[in-house]
């Protein structure tokens, strides 16, 4: 079974704001193609202040879909429409102490229902802007559509490059067959053949000064930052000692169960970019070592 947090279970067994709001003046009906779940969000909005007075949900879906719907209504009640619109799917997932990667789409459905309801209130037509595909990389929750788009947009040719651009395949590596299949399909369309032994652009081997080396490490970390920030996290460089790079994981990354995996990803990227073996260690370990020393 899925590894649902206590909070998800609690919201599923005792959903808040279930049912349609009476005299609702905003309705959002959305569904998720990837699993067939669907959600109707009804809101009662105060026309004077644009405050959400009441929110109710009706969900045809699994445990996490119901829990995400319940969480959404709790989060947005009492908010002004513009405040509510900045609620992201990550906020819904965070509110529930996280969702399994396969189930993140349930939180996306929640956010979309909100957008659809607000559009309905404002007399606009809501259009969905994203398409979801089959989940390929479970470690970093990357789906097929995203991988395919990135491969096309950047002319990627190897699994390694896909990992650099999307994180997909950077964890347990079990999805590499799936990534190769996507590469094969896209490359075939472009009249090329997928070559499993092709190398990503090889790293240059030049002797760097200490300063150049540290700057370069910083540049690599800089390039990874947007991905981490997308997950509400961040990384900062603390020190470099020989082959060991000490970093602090901050924001959502700190204490995240995926932090270990993220560190591995950062390490892998540094090894590739620097063309030497590099070990990435949390700065907290440095203090421990110093204390022991």
């Amino acid at each position: 079974m899925w590894d649902y947090s206590e909070k998800v279970q609690e919201h599923f067994f005792n959903p808040r704001n279930a049912g349609a709001v009476e005299e609702a003046n905003a309705v959002g009906d959305v569904g998720s193609l990837s699993c067939g779940d669907a959600l109707r969000l009804t809101l009662k909005v105060d026309p004077e202040t644009e405050t959400i007075l009441e929110a109710g949900f009706q969900t045809f879906g699994c445990g996490s879909a119901i829990a995400s719907s319940s969480a959404l209504t709790e989060i947005i009640k009492g908010k002004k429409l513009d405040e509510a619109l900045v609620v992201s799917n990550q906020d819904i997932a965070d509110y529930l102490d996280g969702l399994p990667p396969e189930k993140m789409h349930c939180s996306v459905m929640g956010r979309e229902a909100l957008q659809a309801a607000v559009a309905n209130y404002r007399g606009e037509e809501w259009k969905d802007d994203h398409e979801e595909g089959a989940l390929i990389c479970k470690c970093f929750a990357v789906d097929a559509v995203m991988i395919e788009d990135v491969v096309r947009a950047n002319g990627l040719r190897t699994v390694e490059e896909v990992t650099h651009y999307t994180k997909a395949g950077g964890g347990c590596s079990a999805c590499h067959e799936g990534i190769e299949e996507i590469l094969t399909t896209v490359l075939t369309e472009q009249g090329e053949a997928f070559n499993a032994s092709a190398k990503a652009a090889p790293p240059k081997k030049t002797k760097l000064t200490n300063l150049q080396r540290i700057r370069r490490i910083e540049t690599v970390l800089e390039s990874l930052r947007p991905q981490l920030q997308a997950d509400h996290g961040d990384v900062e460089l603390v020190d470099v000692e020989g082959n060991t790079v000490y970093v602090n994981m901050t924001g959502a990354c700190s204490g995240c169960q995926m932090a270990g995996m993220t560190l591995n990803g950062i390490q892998q990227r540094l090894v590739e970019e620097m063309g030497e073996f590099i070990k990435v260690v949390p700065a907290s370990a440095m203090q421990k070592m110093a204390a022991a020393g």
Binding site: D29, G31, Q58
Partner: peptide, 24 residues
Amino acid sequence: KLSPYWSGDGPVEDPAKAFAPAYA
């Protein structure tokens, strides 16, 4: 009771029409 296709003791009238969400 939680389902958008259901109302009271039975499904809503013409369920496929009454609830036709935008799928994404």
